[in-house]
Design a protein around this nucleic acid. Structure first.
Length: 306
RNA sequence: CGCGGGGUAGAGCAGUUUGGUAGCUCGUCGGGCUCAUAACCCGGAGGUCGUGGGUUCAAGUCCCACCCCCGCAA
């Protein structure tokens, strides 16, 4: 099939790579425009664009595909469009162009966690099962009929970033299976059960604020689910102490109070139970194990964290 | 030229202001104590102080250039 791929971040890269390695022909790639990023404000190409360019695939970066990408897409005359974390909403006009429709790779077990940050929300809500679903894109946000899905048990120590990496590879496999089944004509699109659907909003920076009156399990989920972005942190000296990795722990104390500091990491009392922060990052420093940090910067038991 | 922090033993840091013996916590190795231990005691090994140049009797420390890492802002 002649396929146009639409995607932007790292999550989309294995899917695009899988298509490139497959017998299908990737005739064009749509991705978000280059944006200033990183130190020094240099513009950077998205991971998907970088991969496409290495393979000499034409790249299109409309600000809004529904507004100024339609003609380019039409000119490519694809059989199928494949999207994976593209970051733009497709209009009906765009959806009508590919002869066989548009397949989306979504990193959740639909109909749960519709929206742009499904993996983070699965962790935030403490889901035991996570996964990827392929679906036929329609005009709504992640509302189309489901094609195939793959689920796995969530590792309760994984950060959102790590789980994203795992699921991006699962997504690539599932995409190939989906296309194969599509070719074979063995696919049966299944409408989503609207009564079970959840739509989760975009992540916001403020979500990284920690409320120590919450229970330890929830705070651990928050720390893992929001790593690497937006990240959880507490005020610390001139800057903020980033809490990168944590797990629920035993212990009692005033919420926000350090109740152990050493080999177990940095254990902080919560509204219910406690959390052991096991990886953190101080202002100006690199990420490190909490025990390593504490060797050079002891935090006495009894300290209150904001 | 967006703003800022940092690079010292395997890990995390202090020491740089005011140049003059390489220091702390931990790990590691050896020994001791203990029913036992992530505990405690004794002892040892381990460092081109990011790189290159300069100043000096003497540079981790002062000067110049460069490399690498990180935070904020976007």
């Amino acid at each position: 099939m002649r396929i146009v791929f639409m995607g932007t971040p790292d999550f989309a890269v294995p899917s695009l790579q899988a298509l490139i390695d497959s017998p299908h022909e990737v005739i064009g790639v749509f991705t978000q425009p280059d944006r200033p990023k990183g130190r020094g404000g240099k513009v950077q190409a998205s991971p998907v664009k970088q991969l496409a360019q290495r393979h000499g695939i034409p790249v299109f970066q409309p600000e809004r595909i529904r507004r100024d990408g339609v003609e380019d897409l039409r000119a490519l005359a694809p059989d199928l469009c494949v999207t994976a974390a593209f970051g733009q909403i497709l209009s009906q006009e765009v959806l009508d162009i590919p002869r066989l429709g548009t397949v989306n790779v979504h990193a959740s077990l639909l109909p749960r966690h519709r929206g742009s940050a499904p993996i983070a929300w699965a962790i935030l809500q403490g889901d035991e099962e996570v996964g990827v679903t392929t679906m036929l894109t329609d005009k709504g946000i992640d509302t189309g009929a489901m094609l195939l899905a793959k689920s796995l048990k969530r590792d309760p120590l994984m950060t959102c970033g790590e789980l994203t990496e795992v699921l991006s590879r699962v997504g690539a496999e599932l995409l190939l299976e989906t296309l194969a089944a599509m070719d074979a004509g063995t696919l049966t699109p299944v409408p989503q059960d609207e009564s079970r659907m959840t739509y989760d909003p975009m992540l916001k920076k403020e979500m990284g604020e920690i409320d120590w009156s919450q229970c330890g399990q929830d705070i651990a989920n928050q720390i893992l689910g929001l790593n690497p972005w937006p990240g959880c942190s507490v005020p610390w000296g001139e800057g903020r102490l980033k809490l990168l990795r944590a797990l629920p722990a035993e212990g009692e104390g005033e919420p926000g109070e350090v109740i152990a500091s050493g080999k177990q990491g940095l254990v902080i009392a919560c509204g219910q139970g406690a959390v052991a922060v096991t990886q953190l990052q101080a202002p100006g420093g690199k990420a490190m194990a909490a025990t390593d940090y504490l060797r050079g910067h002891p935090i006495p038991v009894g300290t209150h964290l904001g």
